[in-house]
């Protein structure tokens, strides 16, 4: 066996171990797009709460009218649907380009480890909404999303773990400072996604 052969053998083993255990087709651009949707959503939410609810009086910005809550909820759902849709679309495209399959044991494990904290968090937030604890929604979103990313990061790029940790920290800060939920939400889901997505795009996709 020639030395060159051994090297190619070893590098093929390495790449296989990595590809079989990590899902590397996640698209960085979809992170950027999710961030942009979140910024648009946050702006719409801000308009709904701060402009239309109040006339001339100051600090009447309580989110307790059902119509406002419903509209905010619809904005959030729209942002979520668009982000997930774009994410799936771009990831499928990315996988095709790399000649990988999208639906394989790794992506299944990745999805499962993301979905457990997300589903628990989502239900928790719906329950809080139902019981009227609106102030905890932004911190809970950030916190559970961060936990989901950290748990999913075992099956994809390690960078995802750092995004998750940043989201967790933001969530805790948001919980410390009630009233600034929207700002933290905008940083966490908007700016961080754009930053992370661009880093991923230039680091892995090109």
């Amino acid at each position: 066996m020639k030395e060159k052969d051994i090297y190619s053998e070893l590098s093929s083993i390495r790449s296989l171990m990595e590809r079989s255990a990590k899902f590397i087709s996640l698209s960085g651009l979809s992170g950027v797009m999710a961030g942009i949707y979140a910024l648009l959503g946050a702006y719409t939410g801000y308009r709904i709460v701060y402009y239309e609810a109040s006339g001339l009086t100051y600090r009447e910005y309580y989110i307790d009218e059902y119509s406002i809550i419903f509209r905010l909820f619809m904005v959030a759902v729209t942002v979520l649907v668009f982000s997930i849709g774009t994410g799936i679309l771009l990831t499928v495209r990315n996988a095709r380009k790399k000649g990988e399959t999208v639906w394989n044991p790794v992506s299944r494990k990745l999805l499962l480890s993301l979905l457990i904290p997300l589903a628990a968090g989502g239900l928790f937030i719906l329950i809080l909404l139902y019981r009227g604890y609106y102030g905890i929604i932004a911190p809970a979103c950030l916190l559970f999303y961060g936990l989901a990313l950290v748990s999913g990061s075992h099956y994809t790029y390690p960078d995802v773990k750092w995004l998750g940790i940043c989201e967790i920290i933001l969530g805790l800060l948001a919980a410390l400072m009630p009233g600034y939920g929207l700002i933290f939400w905008t940083i966490g889901f908007g700016l961080l996604h754009i930053l992370y997505g661009s880093v991923m795009h230039f680091k892995y996709d090109r």
Binding site: E9, S12, I13, L16, M17, S20, A21, P105
Partner: peptide
């Protein structure tokens, strides 16, 4: 060898 590398890196593979 390739099969083995995949199986060593994962719990199981179908």
């Amino acid at each position: 060898l390739q099969i083995m590398s995949v199986l060593v890196a994962n719990d199981s593979y179908d």
